[in-house]
């Protein structure tokens, strides 16, 4: 019996077609469940039930110090449950890139909202993680606080590489896929002055201190979106 419980905390994941077109193939035992990002499912075997939950995400944008605007965005997660025969679910991502699987054992992981793919049922997902308040509105990024025991699957835009921080390390916020909350982090400007940081195109960076791992992606979705979006012509 006990082995069954342990089995259900972990997901049997096989990442295929790495690194450019990674897809996660998850093999489920009978009755096993997991949670995934809305829209991530590519294919699945018959007899798997899907349901959706809505999370209201609120975040605050401070401007002129005392005025605040609350943004409400809905965030959807799909839950999959295998039937009597078990089954397979294949999950993909929007952008070309890689994926990685992380087994959590109670520690906290912060994942960029767009990088989350799936997790086993005992993993808690906090959609209102507010560690980087000022960053959220500016770069259009949001972050998920993830903790518990089990498996988490994360995807990246481009290649993904872990950096084991010991001391200090600086990463452009748009390139952060995930990091361990055991690290101290604070947002700062990239250069010496705010003017050079903004004109230099680096914008905000995150300075990590202490011990822990940061997963970094080679491409930046926000920059890609801004470059591509501004070049598209309106239809007449």
């Amino acid at each position: 019996m006990e082995s069954n419980i342990i089995d259900n905390q972990k997901l049997n994941v096989n990442i295929q077609l790495r690194p450019g077109s990674a897809a996660a193939e998850i093999k489920l035992n009978p009755g096993q469940e997991f949670t995934a990002e809305a829209g991530a499912m590519i294919a699945m075997s018959q007899g798997i039930q899907m349901s959706t939950t809505t999370y209201k995400k609120e975040f605050w944008w401070n401007y002129e110090r005392y005025k605040k605007i609350a943004f409400r965005r809905k965030f959807f997660l799909n839950h999959y449950k295998a039937g009597q025969q078990g089954g397979t679910v294949i999950l993909g991502a929007t952008h070309a890139g890689d994926m990685f699987v992380k087994e959590l054992n109670g520690e906290n992981l912060i994942v960029q909202g767009g990088s989350y793919v799936a997790s086993s049922p005992d993993i808690e997902i906090n959609t209102n993680w507010q560690g980087f308040k000022s960053l959220i509105s500016k770069e259009g990024l949001f972050w998920l606080g993830i903790k518990g025991k089990g498996t988490v699957i994360v995807n990246s835009f481009g290649a993904i590489y872990p950096v084991v921080v010991s001391g200090e390390y600086i990463v452009d916020t748009g390139h952060i896929v995930a990091f361990e909350e055991s690290l101290n982090f604070n947002l700062t400007k990239a250069g010496k002055s705010w003017i050079s940081s903004i004109l230099g195109g680096e914008g905000l960076v995150c300075k990590f201190k202490g011990q822990g791992t940061v997963w970094v992606q080679s491409h930046n979705t926000t920059s890609f979106g801004n470059i591509l979006g501004s070049r598209l012509k309106p239809r007449r």
Binding site: A38, G39, M50, S51, T52, F76, N78
Partner: peptide, 13 residues
């Protein structure tokens, strides 16, 4: 439909 009516349209599938 991917799931129920709610799941299919809001669940993104």
């Amino acid at each position: 439909l991917a799931g129920g009516i709610f799941s299919s349209f809001f669940g993104g599938e």
